[in-house]
Simulated assay, not measured.
Amino acid sequence: MLEFDGLHKRFGSNHVLDGVSFAVQPGSMFGFCGSNGAGKTTTMRIAMGLARADAGEVRWRGKALDQDVRRRIGYMPEERGLYPKMKVGEQVAYFARLHGLDAGAARRASDEWVARLGLGERRGDQVEKLSLGNQQRVQLAAALVSRPEVLILDEPFSGLDPIGVDSLAEALLDQCRGGVPVVFSSHQLDLVERLCDSVGILARGRMVATGTVTELREREAGRLLRVVVPDAGHGWTDGVPDVRVVSERNGDTLLELGPGADDQAVLAAALRSSRVTHFAWQQPTLVELFREAVAVPTAAEVAA
């Protein structure tokens, strides 16, 4: 597997990474989430040897990454690393050659990925003449062209239109089906939720949550209850212990239940008020899980 083990990194007094650890199984996709400045890019740069960790290491198949292993990794940086005057097809083939493919194999792989990512008609154009979204596709083709054993992608979906998103998503799923572990960072949490087998949320240099979306939801289960009582008056939950009304509109009420709350007591109160048309635990979205995970702790929480 691909392992990030106890990474620490400081820039002056700023502790950018504080013991970051996670693992990605072969054939799985890992979504790396965090606010701007959380440390996602630094983590990926350490994996690729573009930054040096103060402590910890990154391993593939139990071996610390060295230059030989990194040649077999498909990497896409957040900032574009393309040659603007070079033609699209030639550029992708050039990156394939850098990863060890011979001239014929590089040309064939370039043609395949340029076409697959929707750039077939632009293969003879200089990169600088492309839109930013199409330049992003070229960068992605350069990461995928060498038949990598591992993919590490920093914001790969940024700037892509819906068709580009779909074609890239299918390409990454194909890589996973072939046994390649994929790590990508993204602020597009709906994509992370849809595509990824597991998720890591980074905040203030620390991994504050890891696991599948289902596992993260289960950790938050039992907190939010949605109750629809169309004909109930305001305040029907008054008197039910340890229950807080999060939102209420036209009889549709979202409740947060504390440790001492009893969902059956809530149901009984709702039935006393009027007929109940909906009563179910509310599954948090990845966006809601993210907001809670990265929330800045209060002074009291830090002291505790």
Rank of each mutant, 00 (worst) to 15 (best):
T210S: 15
V165M: 11
G200H: 07
P181S: 10
V208R: 12
T210R: 14
L191H: 04
C176Q: 08
G211D: 04
P241Y: 03
V183L: 15
E193G: 08
G200L: 02
S146A: 15
H187F: 09
G235N: 10
L168V: 05
E220G: 05
V138M: 08
Q188R: 11
S185H: 03
L191Q: 13
R194P: 01
R223Y: 05
S167Q: 14
A232V: 03
A143E: 09
G235T: 07
L144T: 01
R217I: 06
S131Y: 01
T237D: 12
S158V: 02
L132C: 14
V183K: 00
L173Y: 00
H187E: 13
V208N: 13
V228R: 04
F184G: 09
V180L: 04
L191E: 10
D242G: 06
Q136R: 14
P162K: 01
R226T: 04
D197H: 06
G211K: 03
P156D: 01
R217L: 07
V165A: 00
L132V: 08
G235D: 10
E218N: 11
A221G: 15
G205Y: 06
T237R: 01
D161S: 04
V138I: 14
A141L: 14
I201T: 02
V208A: 15
G133I: 11
I163Q: 14
M207K: 06
V183T: 04
L202A: 12
V180N: 09
I201G: 15
V138A: 10
G222E: 06
L168S: 07
S186R: 00
H234N: 12
G239S: 11
R244E: 15
Q135R: 08
D161L: 07
P241Q: 02
L189Q: 06
D238C: 08
Q188K: 04
V227F: 05
L144D: 14
L224C: 03
V245T: 13
R137S: 11
D242L: 10
A143H: 10
G133N: 12
V240F: 10
G179C: 13
R219W: 01
V192A: 01
C196D: 02
I163H: 05
P148W: 05
A203N: 14
V213Y: 08
D154V: 12
G233D: 05
G222F: 04
E220Y: 10
C176A: 15
R204V: 09
V145I: 09
Q135Y: 02
L160P: 14
D197Y: 05
L160S: 14
P162T: 02
T212D: 07
Q135D: 11
L172D: 07
D242C: 09
Q136G: 15
P230H: 03
G239P: 10
V227H: 03
E149H: 05
L225C: 03
L132Q: 14
